[in-house]
Simulated scan of single mutants.
Amino acid sequence: MNNILIIEDEIKVSEVIKAYLERAGYRVYCSTRGYDGIKLFNKINFQLVILDLMLPDIDGEEICKIIREVSDVHIFMLTAKAELSDKIKGLTLGADEYLTKPLSPRELTARVNALFRRINSDKTTILSYDGGKLKIDNERRNVQVKGKYVVLTPNEFDILYALALNNGKVLSREQLIRNVYGIDFEGSDRTIDAHIKNLRKKIEYNSKEPKYILTVVKIGYKFGAVKDPE
């Protein structure tokens, strides 16, 4: 059973979300304060954190930073801030989805279900590039650059894996969204750009002159490395 942590100061909101998710088969824990949520996160192995940004004691964005320093757990940010700049900032901090209030608990549950379907899909392929300098292990969902593990968020990993599987093929932002978020995603396709920027910082030797993730102007992105012989 997957464990989900809800950090939300509106008790009625968290109770409704908790009820829907438990009905869907998840084990759900709730915290109304940020620091208490962090303590709970450090005690239990969670697979997803649903994080409100407007908390009474600490900003949700700061909590996201703290969690990302120690874990690649999936993070859904939940907030009333609907501006694109806010969404890009949240994704840059390491969130996997940025959901704006008011949000239907049924829709949120559908997004959570879609997330875990993606996680539990194909887990058999190990891809190696550039003489083993870049390795992508889909079974363990980890990435090595020059023999060192790099920490990717779940969505960053899914984007990298989708590009690598389609090596040399140009994928539009819309195609990457379908691969990562599913067909019901309603946000801006520019959220992909924020993830790509983070990915390049983590896996490229020079993020300003990338060799793995290449931009195809006005179309999207493609993977540019040659796969190692098996």
Rank of each mutant, 00 (worst) to 15 (best):
D57G: 01
I58F: 14
I58S: 07
I58T: 06
G60S: 00
E62P: 00
E62W: 01
E62S: 03
C64W: 00
I66G: 00
I66C: 01
I66K: 04
I67M: 08
I67Q: 03
I67N: 04
I67R: 02
E69G: 00
E69M: 01
E69D: 03
V70C: 09
V70K: 15
V70S: 11
S71H: 11
D72M: 03
D72L: 03
H74W: 06
I75F: 10
F76K: 00
M77E: 01
M77V: 10
M77P: 01
T79P: 10
T79F: 10
A80P: 07
A80S: 15
K81A: 14
K81S: 11
A82C: 10
A82Q: 10
E83G: 09
E83F: 13
L84V: 05
S85C: 04
D86V: 04
I88G: 02
I88R: 02
K89Y: 15
G90L: 00
G90T: 00
G90F: 00
L91A: 12
T92L: 04
T92D: 06
T92V: 03
L93C: 01
G94S: 00
A95E: 02
Y98L: 01
L99I: 12
L99H: 01
K101M: 11
K101E: 10
K101I: 09
K101C: 06
K101W: 11
S104K: 05
P105S: 14
P105T: 08
P105F: 15
P105Y: 13
R106D: 14
E107I: 12
E107R: 12
L108I: 06
L108R: 12
T109L: 08
T109G: 10
R111E: 14
R111T: 09
R111M: 12
R111G: 08
R111H: 13
V112Q: 06
N113T: 12
A114I: 04
L115F: 15
L115K: 01
L115D: 02
L115G: 03
F116D: 09
F116Q: 05
R117W: 14
R117E: 15
I119H: 05
I119W: 05
I119G: 01
N120Y: 02
N120K: 02
D122C: 05
D122Q: 06
D122E: 10
D122A: 06
K123R: 14
K123Q: 14
K123W: 09
T124I: 06
T124E: 13
I126A: 09
L127S: 07
S128C: 11
S128M: 07
D130E: 07
D130T: 02
G131H: 05
G131Y: 08
G132Y: 08
K133F: 12
K133C: 11
K133A: 11
K133P: 02
L134E: 06
K135S: 10
K135L: 12
I136G: 13
I136E: 07
D137V: 07
N138I: 06
N138M: 13
N138A: 14
E139S: 12
E139V: 04
E139F: 12
R141K: 14
R141E: 09
N142T: 07
N142C: 09
N142Q: 09
Q144F: 15
K146Y: 15
K146R: 08
K146P: 03
G147Y: 14
K148S: 11
Y149S: 09
V150C: 07
